[in-house]
């Protein structure tokens, strides 16, 4: 095992870790602040990925413009879903079932429109790699990583320093007292759900950019993303980022040092050990 290969696999682990964090952030926020385990987050990510494909590959829209309208669109859709969840009084466990239903519907829809065949987005943007010493750094991954880190740090800053962030944290701890001080929990919940939807759209753009698409692929993300979210501590953007990077790098090392088939075992071993050692974190 040479050092160069190890460094290269650490780098690719960091990149996948960044993507895990970006995809997990919305899930983590809605779980913590809405008490909703939103499985349809994955469906939203894939819907956004397919829409990105459609806009970029078929309609030839500049891919940098795609998030500008996908994110607001998904914000609205997710907020509407949250309105329905409030309207029907769906609780934390009910939300798993309800949003799984949405996931299946969306998956069927994707198959209907784009078929189950693999689609690969070919674009001239972010093509190729830069060479950094002995390392090969793909532009697309590097750009995605930058966006993921910025998003997580930005979300942390919003929660930590703004009135809305403080209101969210106060509301989740004691809604009655928070309401006395003027916190309007319904409005906030729509904001959180919408932001999670926007994050799904943002993540979806990168899924389209980095992977070949097929609808059933969405389920393969469940395990690793949930492991990331749970390890990161619910509602903690920096936690999600660190957990994502930890999972990504350790997976990558397992692949390089042992065998690629060992990769899935890593996040779950990490998650189970963490839950055993520090069960109070959730």
């Amino acid at each position: 095992m040479n050092a160069n290969l190890l460094a290269q696999s650490a780098l690719s682990g960091l990149f996948s870790g960044g993507l895990y964090a970006l995809l997990g952030l919305g899930l983590s926020l809605s779980w913590r602040f809405l008490r909703i385990i939103n499985l349809s987050h994955f469906a939203m990510i894939f819907l956004a990925a397919y829409l990105t494909y459609q806009c970029t590959a078929i309609w030839k829209i500049n891919p940098y413009l795609v998030p500008l309208f996908l994110i607001p669109l998904f914000f609205v859709v997710a907020a509407l879903q949250q309105l329905a969840i409030i309207r029907f009084g769906i609780d934390e466990f009910g939300s798993i079932v309800a949003t799984f239903g949405v996931t299946i519907v969306v998956e069927a829809l994707l198959q209907l429109i784009w078929s189950a065949d693999f689609l690969r987005l070919e674009t001239d943007h972010l093509k190729g790699s830069m060479v950094l010493g002995s390392l090969l750094v793909p532009w697309a991954d590097a750009f995605m990583f930058m966006c993921a880190v910025t998003t997580c740090v930005g979300a942390w800053g919003l929660l930590r320093f703004t009135y809305i962030g403080k209101a969210l944290r106060a509301n989740v701890e004691n809604p009655a007292i928070a309401s006395i001080f003027g916190v309007q929990s319904r409005r906030l919940s729509l904001l959180v759900a919408g932001s999670a939807g926007g994050l799904a759209a943002f993540g979806g753009v990168f899924i389209a950019l980095l992977f070949a698409l097929t609808p059933s692929q969405m389920y393969s993300w469940f395990g690793v993303i949930f492991a990331t979210v749970i390890m990161g501590g619910l509602g903690s953007p920096l936690g999600v980022l660190v957990a994502g990077l930890l999972v990504g790098v350790s997976e990558s090392f397992a692949m390089a040092l042992v065998a690629p088939s060992w990769a899935p075992i890593v996040p779950f071993t990490l998650m189970v050990s963490l839950l055993t050692l520090r069960p109070g974190r959730i």
Binding site: Y163, K166, A167, R169, A170, E173, N174, I177, A178, I180, F181, G182, V183
Partner: peptide
């Protein structure tokens, strides 16, 4: 009307100043 509730009911996971900020949320 401001309420100082029984058992204080602070936002216990937040800092002192963040609690005070919630007081002037409006």
């Amino acid at each position: 009307i401001a309420v100082i509730p029984e058992g204080r009911r602070l936002f216990t996971q937040m800092t002192v100043e963040e609690n005070l900020d919630m007081g002037c949320y409006r």
